[in-house]
Nucleic acid binder design. Structure first.
Length: 369
DNA sequence: AACGAGCGCAACCGCAATGAC
DNA sequence: AGTCATTGCGGTTGCGCTCGT
């Protein structure tokens, strides 16, 4: 049996509320109090759905609402709360007096999410002596073609979509995005059958040995074969749909090649993945919460790949295999360090330590800059 | 000046949770 | 215990405004 509609659709007005309707609703609620939303429209003489009345009251007419722009302090609080609460907008809003869940949600979706994304992929190295390779797209230019809403939908993670090739549906990379790639990164690219090894270190490697990367410096022994070069042709290849390029990553000590592009095919194939590496890769790839965030802002797994390189580069890396249960936010991993299953930062010296106050502030400042 | 893509906000939709019966 | 109405929440969409071309 289907659920009865919350109200009769016939004769119900929709769309923007007029000042007159607002006045009627406000007066009624001030006289009769909140509640009984279903019967409210009829009693108040409004041609609106009860749900619509409730929404209008809660989000715009309540007297205790704060108006005006979100302040930097509020913004910082939202970022922090979201890092621990995820998309629980009502919970987050409850910590910001005068703000509504809808307001916070809209603000996050239209401001902070983009900010965070840009933070991840645009920032050059600040804390490592490893030189970053900045691949700059052409000067900022508005991309022709309107982004459809459906194209903005977050993608659900599907290993079958891991091919590092653009599909016709995939948008061009953001024109103003400077893709930052850490030179010492374990991206191994198969170019027309020839393997070009780009770096010794990768976060998938953290799957071994309880998560310590061991690869962030030159003392690494995990498949550390050094880096000689990394040029933008690599990224072009990653993004070029006409090229059958694949991305590999080494997975810790055995330095086996894991062909992400052929992940599905490689499943169970010891020729490409040994069991240990397969487990490692699967544990990484199955982290829905990890993937969720980037899927909201990216259409290409390639971006996730590179993004996380950059996070690592910043020293705010974390053990992605030690995902904090219940958290669906990347930031939580960046910030949390007091949970044994969560790593605040990692490098080879102090892996596992939480971010201290200054580092956390630095991260926030960066996020919000 | 005109056009149109992109953005931001307000509102809607559908599902889940809760409570009454 | 099961059913249904109501409320609450998060995701999504529609539309008007802004700004680049």
């Amino acid at each position: 049996m289907g659920r009865a509609p919350c109200c009769e659709k016939v004769g119900i007005k929709r769309g923007r509320w007029t000042a007159e309707e607002d006045q009627i609703l406000s007066s009624y609620i001030q006289s009769n109090g909140e509640g009984s939303w279903r019967s409210l429209p009829k009693n108040a003489g409004l041609k609106r759905c009860g749900k619509s009345c409730r929404l209008r009251w809660i989000n715009y007419l309540r007297s205790d609402l704060k108006r005006g722009n979100i302040t930097p302090e509020e913004e910082q609080l939202v970022v922090k709360l979201h890092s621990t609460l995820g998309n629980r907008w009502s919970l987050i809003a409850s910590q910001l007096p005068g703000r509504t869940d809808n307001e916070i949600k809209n603000y996050w979706n239209s401001h902070l999410r983009r900010k965070l994304h840009n933070f991840i992929i645009r920032k050059p190295s600040i804390s490592h002596d490893v030189p970053a390779v900045i691949i700059k797209a052409p000067p900022t230019k508005r991309r022709p073609g309107r982004t459809s809403r459906s194209a903005m939908k977050p993608k659900t993670h599907n290993p079958k979509n891991l091919k590092m090739k653009k599909t016709p549906e995939s948008p061009e990379p953001e024109a103003n995005v400077a893709v930052t790639v850490v030179a010492q990164e374990a991206l191994m690219i198969e170019l027309n059958g020839a393997e070009a090894e780009l770096g010794p270190c990768n976060y998938y490697g953290t799957c071994h040995e309880g998560g310590a990367c061991g690869n962030n410096n030159n003392n690494s022994t995990d498949g550390d074969k050094g880096v000689s070069s990394f040029d933008e042709n690599i990224i072009d290849l990653l993004l070029d749909e006409s090229e059958p390029s694949h991305v590999f990553t080494s997975c810790g000590g055995n330095a086996e090649l894991n062909n992400l592009g052929d992940y599905e095919q490689a499943k169970g194939s010891s020729e490409i993945l040994n069991q240990e590496n397969l487990d490692c890769l699967q544990s990484c790839l199955s982290m829905e919460s990890f993937l969720n965030y980037e899927h909201q802002v990216n259409n290409a797994f390639t971006d996730e790949f590179i993004d996380w390189d950059c996070v690592w580069q910043q020293g705010y890396d974390n053990n992605i295999c030690d995902e904090k249960e219940g958290s669906d936010s990347m930031v939580s991993w960046l910030l949390d360090g007091d949970d044994e299953a969560t790593i605040g930062k990692s490098n080879c010296e102090n892996f596992g330590e939480p971010l201290d106050h200054d580092e956390e502030n630095a991260l926030f400042a960066w996020l919000l800059s």
